[in-house]
Amino acid sequence: MSLSPDQIQQLARLVRLKFTESEADDLSEQLNDIISMVEQMNQIDTRHIQPMSHPQDMRLRLRKDIVTEKDRHKEFQSGAPATDSGLYLVPRVVE
């Protein structure tokens, strides 16, 4: 598999990045190097192997349903890019 500059732009949209055409060209080369390295995986047979999501097979610990958090929005918003009336402001979003 190799990634074209167009595909790079599609992936960029998914992760909300923007690249110029020449950046996408350079990236396409670098990413294709990485992908061919990654594809060495295919040399190993993994039939009948269970995928592993966590480094050790752990089980989820469940927390008691207790309210432990207090209002600290002023503190949290002190470094926020834009707020008003306790709300975080973003460019208009229309459904």
Binding site: R16, L17, K18, F76, G79, A80, P81, A82, Y88, V90, P91, R92, V93
Partner: peptide, 20 residues
Amino acid sequence: DGVRYGHRTFEYTDIIEMYE
């Protein structure tokens, strides 16, 4: 994403542009 903390770009016209 520039919504709640950290860097936010200076100029933007819509949310997608702000994110990117």
